[in-house]
Write a protein that binds this DNA or RNA. Structure first.
Lengths: 152, 152
DNA sequence: ATATTAAATAGGAATAATCTTAATAAGAAA
DNA sequence: TTTCTTATTAAGATTATTCCTATTTAATAT
């Protein structure tokens, strides 16, 4: 916690009561969490906090590289993860479960080679959508009626 | 157009007036477009169409693999692209410009090897955020005040 | 051509996320 | 400590997106 406060000062970001409260809340959240969860938790300590402040700061923390955003399918918003290392996630269409991919197929130095001088990379986000082993059987049956594609 | 209608029937999806109108609109949209743009365009031909119908069908078309969704940074929603082949995109934090990466560093067969039997992949989404060459100079100056990280 | 049935829709309610502005407070300087 | 500057905030307005339900209509069977 003190490390992050020092880090924020280094980045010329003010260390406000609300930011400290948000950082405290993150410790109470699970591995993946929504802005709503953080809001509910912070509100217990600071009933006056506004939703806007939560969003603004979660986005700031993302930009600073303290959090990663994970995009849910079907435009269902996004959740956050506390990690400084971007990595891919598997997301189940059916149950919504999120799994980390540790053995990452994307290396930033490879990406940098690909984009060359045309672009300066700050961060990336790779979501892999489909069905977890648990949901596969039931969902594949349902998909057969829609005949959705699957990569093999 | 006729191909897509046949395709929809094959997938057991009904070919409604609204769906045909949406498909027609897509031809009028640029390479990347928002649900709002499609709504505005469809509304000209069918003033009664509801926003819900636009969203529902753009999501359906995504699920069917006709469209890809591109997640904008800072939770700023997403735009769609007409393409059946998922591929990465570079997105400029500053001007919002979107660039395709053709020489893709992600291959579905590699992903499938990584996830093995634990997950059935349907599609993926890789967004690479940062600054385009045009915005780099001006924005890096701004970033120095915030001292945001950049990968080298 | 008509009836049947289930998917798809419109409309409006509900929720989520962002923007605007005046007030507040953190950090810097005196 | 006190003042000053400006980033940050709360509040509410606005916009974006999804949900709910009664109605409509595409596709199928008669």
């Amino acid at each position: 916690m003190n490390d992050i406060i020092i880090f924020l000062r280094e980045k010329n970001c003010r260390v406000t009561t609300q930011r400290k409260a948000i950082l405290n809340s993150l410790a109470n959240c699970g591995q993946y969490f929504s802005a709503q969860e953080v809001f509910d938790d912070v509100k217990r300590a600071y009933p006056d906090v506004s939703f806007d402040t939560i969003y603004r700061n979660l986005n700031l923390f993302s930009m600073l590289g303290l959090l990663q955003q994970i995009h849910l399918p079907k435009g269902d918003g996004h959740v956050f993860e506390i990690t400084e290392v971007p990595h891919p996630h598997l997301i189940c269409f059916n149950c919504g479960k999120i799994l980390c991919v540790d053995n990452t197929p994307v290396e930033l130095n490879i990406l940098n080679k690909v984009v060359g001088d045309e672009f300066t990379i700050c961060r990336y986000s790779l979501e892999i959508y489909g069905y977890c082993s648990k949901c596969r059987a039931t969902q594949q049956a349902a998909n057969r009626s829609l005949e959705l594609e699957e990569y093999s």
